[in-house]
Design a protein around this nucleic acid. Sequence first.
DNA 1: TCTTCGACTGCGGATATCCGCAATTCAAGG
DNA 2: CCTTGAATTGCGGATATCCGCAGTCGAAGA
Lengths: 243, 243
Amino acid sequence: MNVLITEDDALHRAFLKTTVENALPECDQVLEAEDGEIAMQKVATNDVFGIIMDLQMPKASGVDAAKEIWRRNPDMRILFWSNYADEAYVRGVSRIVPSGAVYGYLLKSASEERLELAVRGVFLQDQCIIDREVRGIQQRSEDTLEGLTDSEFEVLTDIALGMTDKAIARRRNISSRSVQSRLKHLYEKLCIDASDTGFEFGPVFNSRTRAVATAFSRGLLNADGLAASQESLDEWLRGPTLR
Amino acid sequence: MNVLITEDDALHRAFLKTTVENALPECDQVLEAEDGEIAMQKVATNDVFGIIMDLQMPKASGVDAAKEIWRRNPDMRILFWSNYADEAYVRGVSRIVPSGAVYGYLLKSASEERLELAVRGVFLQDQCIIDREVRGIQQRSEDTLEGLTDSEFEVLTDIALGMTDKAIARRRNISSRSVQSRLKHLYEKLCIDASDTGFEFGPVFNSRTRAVATAFSRGLLNADGLAASQESLDEWLRGPTLR
DNA sequence: TCTTCGACTGCGGATATCCGCAATTCAAGG
DNA sequence: CCTTGAATTGCGGATATCCGCAGTCGAAGA
């Protein structure tokens, strides 16, 4: 029974290793990977029972790696261990977890006991253990009222990448007027009122860019998620529209 | 002789403490702070000789805290210890360091020996010790050719916050046409060509939002720096234009 | 079946943005 | 003194974006 630790920070990696050795005496070997790519390799070439994975990593992010690993091995137990409970991360994880898969989502601020309990719960008892704080974000992002629709979130990432209305319309197979309609709803939910003139010479903010800014400051978007979205956009650009 | 460690991650904090105790036997007491605000308090109420400071922290970021601390005490030795060598961080630090101040900038990926050497160099021998990688970024951001002008950087943060051309013009005391002129140069340096049609239905990207996206992915901007810029914007909005 | 509600869509107008062209200013050097 | 180059500004036009209004469509529910 081997456990893989995927974490770029050396100190955290060492800490996780000793914790696993403590909490899981049944564990034969603790493998280590310092980024998502190495993790995928190690899973492919070793008999890995479960994974503890950081979300913020260079090269392949934790979400990317988990997605690929679950694609080949839907039963893999994965315990995510992250610094933040940003909506972007929570959403990203929720999107890729296969139905029936066993996983956990713990914050690094959690105590060592909670971590040990989570390790045993996820790896030995097939429990899904989600940090309370994360759980809150998860629910909120599922509620249509509090958070954003998938459509709105989609269009938000698109404008954050700098796409024009027309390009978004093409990509999502809707009219450009619909894109604007979705944007309008997005602006409302983010409380962006272009005519809300903070000073006497007209509006201070451009709705489009302002939406991206507030989404960033609220944790709806983050650099990692944006990089991932950029990749899928590149793929789309290379794809069907290429002559 | 007391040393203050400012770092939100508990593991890193503990690591720094033992390192300092090893490298600096002369040190009487190691104080700890888990965010920038606490750091400022501790500096005010204790006799602190030098500081090791993380840059990414909740509440007040490392740059904010260092700025305030240096304002009251320009001779304070500060060793920055950061995960990334993002241009935004390097620029932020370079901007606030008083002339003649002793400081260091080390990456967390540096070895423990390098860290110990840096601690002794900065605290005991008044050396400025800058990580080679950071030094590279620093030089590049000083060169006008490679990096961006201060004007261009300024306008970049403004559009990233969602400001309109007119508002930027007001704030920076130039005409809105000049804002567009600066933007044009910015777009050129970021290699953003709106007419670079990736597909057959016109341009894919909106220059303005695209610039923000690429600036983010290149580390010219980051969430922390944006939050700081937002604060100074709020201040300006409350200030002279308020009737 | 009828109603309701939300999403999508087209039209048209008000602004905002992007950019080429050209005149001006100003500072650094030859 | 003259030249050069960079920054600023105005003008004008081509697009892009934002948004109100109104019509269509499909799904959910009475």
